[in-house]
Every structure is written in C-alpha cells, then in structure tokens.
C-alpha cells in the first residue's frame, strides 16, 4: 500500500452542543477520505461552513477527529507536529514584533538557537523580498507584504505538508495573482505537499493537481476532479488553459447541485 503524505481515513468531527438549545451539537464533517501523495497539491472547495477549516485543524493536530484517523507520513496525528505547517487568510503577524522576529516566531517556540534562527530567517526574508523590511513592524507594510512574511514564517520551518486556508482571499486581485504565482512555484520546485482550501474556483484549478468538492454540512467529499493541465507551477498561464473553462462550468454546476440536495 502506498504511503501518503497526508491521509484522512473515514474522518468525522462532531462538536458537542455548547448550550442546551443547540440540541445534538454539530456534525461538521462526516466520513471524509482523502489521500494526498508526496509533492501533490490538492485544492478543497465547498460552500462556507462545510467544515473545510475543521479538516485543516485536524490535519495540523490542533483538534482530534471524533471518528476515523488522520495520518501524516503514515503516522497518526495526535498533536501539533513539525511536519505540518499552516497559513491562514489572516497573516497573524504579531504587531509588537519586527518582520524578522515574526518570521522567527515558530523557530523560537520550537527552541532553535538564535544563530540558526537568524540564518534561516535571513534566507527566507531574502527569498520573499523582505530583507529591506526585516526591522519594520507589520503595520508599516502593505497587505501583500504582510502575507508574504506569513508565508516566510511558514516555510522557514521546512514543513513537509502545507495547509493553506484561503491564504490569499484578503488581498486585492493583483497582489493575489503575484502571490499565487510565487507560492505555486515554491510548491513545485520544492516538491511540497499541500492542501489548499479556497473559495476561488479559478485559484483552485490554477494551482492544484486535484480539486475536491465538499458538500454542505455535514461536509463530505462529493466530487474529485483531476486537473488535466500542465504548468501547475505557473498559475498565470494555467488560468488561460483551454481546459480550465469547462472545469469551472462543471464546478459551478456541482456546487449548485450540492445546494439543491441540501434543500430537498
């Protein structure tokens, strides 16, 4: 049996009721099976509140599944671990730290010594064109630069699996495309495995090898589309690929169907 980088096996997550009026609580996701191979980028789309972020919390070890198992490199995830790193829509930069100190945040918590931290952060600050802003505070940078600093903070940990939760959705269209391009190239060149959660159908298709579609709550995988187009490392040109149009049409109808089923 092939060993997957990231694997969800029959995973369900049930949140117990907070108040008595909540009744049975909420079943966020129900029996999700996903297997992601090394170096593969898989996008996950679905209506809001379908449990996409729950899936991500399970993969990062911040939360445990109610049923089923999550594996990273064949090992069951039982807490945060250094193979997995995530990046969210919010940059989550600490306002009282300079950009350099923010990039070093994860390493600091993991207890790397100062010299090693400095070396690594220098490298990634340069790589993401932030060297000139290393000693600036987050509020002095534009949204795009802050998100790039967040990316540097994630990549500096050399994670095997990246969990990306709508990483670009707070950015303006132009900045978004530039960052998509940067990230796609990094993922491709360093053969990173990634799970990309997004609302943006074009982003999903332009950046991934496969697109998974989730249903409304309780979230299930209702469709898988293998994106049969080259140039995953170059989302800008992939956007114009002739196959992308039909895929979008298919996804749109799929998401509508999911909606209608829910109403019945």
């Amino acid at each position: 049996m092939a060993r997957y980088r990231l694997e969800f096996k029959g995973v369900s997550k049930h949140f117990p009721p907070m108040r008595r009026s909540d009744g049975e609580g909420v079943l966020a996701i129900d029996g999700v099976d996903v297997a992601i191979e090394e170096g593969e980028v898989v996008a996950l789309i679905g209506p809001s509140g379908c449990g996409k972020s729950t899936l991500l919390n399970l993969a990062s070890g911040l939360d445990r599944p109610s049923r089923g198992n999550v594996f990273v490199d064949g090992e069951e995830v039982d807490g945060p671990n250094e193979h997995v790193a995530f990046m969210l829509q919010k940059d989550l930069l600490l306002p009282w730290r300079t950009i350099r100190k923010n990039v070093e945040f994860g390493q600091e918590i993991r207890g790397l010594d100062a010299a090693e931290r400095r070396k690594r952060s220098e490298h990634f600050l340069a790589k993401y064109h932030l060297s000139d802003f290393a000693n600036r505070y987050p509020h002095e940078l534009s949204g795009g630069m802050r998100q790039r600093a967040a990316l540097a903070r994630t990549m500096v940990m050399y994670p095997d699996v990246l969990l990306l939760d709508e990483p670009f959705s707070a950015l303006d269209a132009q900045t978004k495309m530039v960052l998509q391009q940067d990230l796609a190239r990094t993922l491709f060149e360093e053969k990173k495995t990634a799970l990309l959660i997004t609302h943006d159908l074009v982003e999903a298709l332009a950046m991934s090898d496969r697109v998974l579609v989730m249903s409304r709550r309780p979230g299930k995988i209702i469709r898988e589309i293998v994106v049969d187009a080259e140039n995953r490392q170059d989302p800008m040109s992939r956007r114009q690929h002739p196959k992308i149009g039909p895929y979008i049409a298919e996804l749109m109808s799929l998401l509508d169907i999911g909606h209608a089923e829910e109403l019945v």
């Binding site: 919390n57 990062s60 070890g61 911040l62 807490g79 945060p80 671990n81 250094e82 997995v84 790193a85 995530f86 969210l88 919010k90 989550l92 600490l94 009282w96 945040f105 994860g106 600091e108 918590i109 993991r110 940990m157």
Partner: peptide
C-alpha cells in the same frame, strides 16, 4: 485572536509560551 493562539499551538507552544509570547504582549 484565537487564531493567533492556534498558530502558536501549531508550533507546539506550551501554555507558558502562549502567555509570555502572545497574551502578555
């Protein structure tokens, strides 16, 4: 922001580190 605390937790931060590096500042 709970997301900020989750970020620290994803790096395996201890309760003390979360206090000292996030909540206190």
């Amino acid at each position: 922001d709970p997301a900020m605390i989750n970020l620290a937790r994803s790096f395996n931060a201890s309760r003390w580190q979360i206090f000292w590096k996030i909540e206190f500042p």
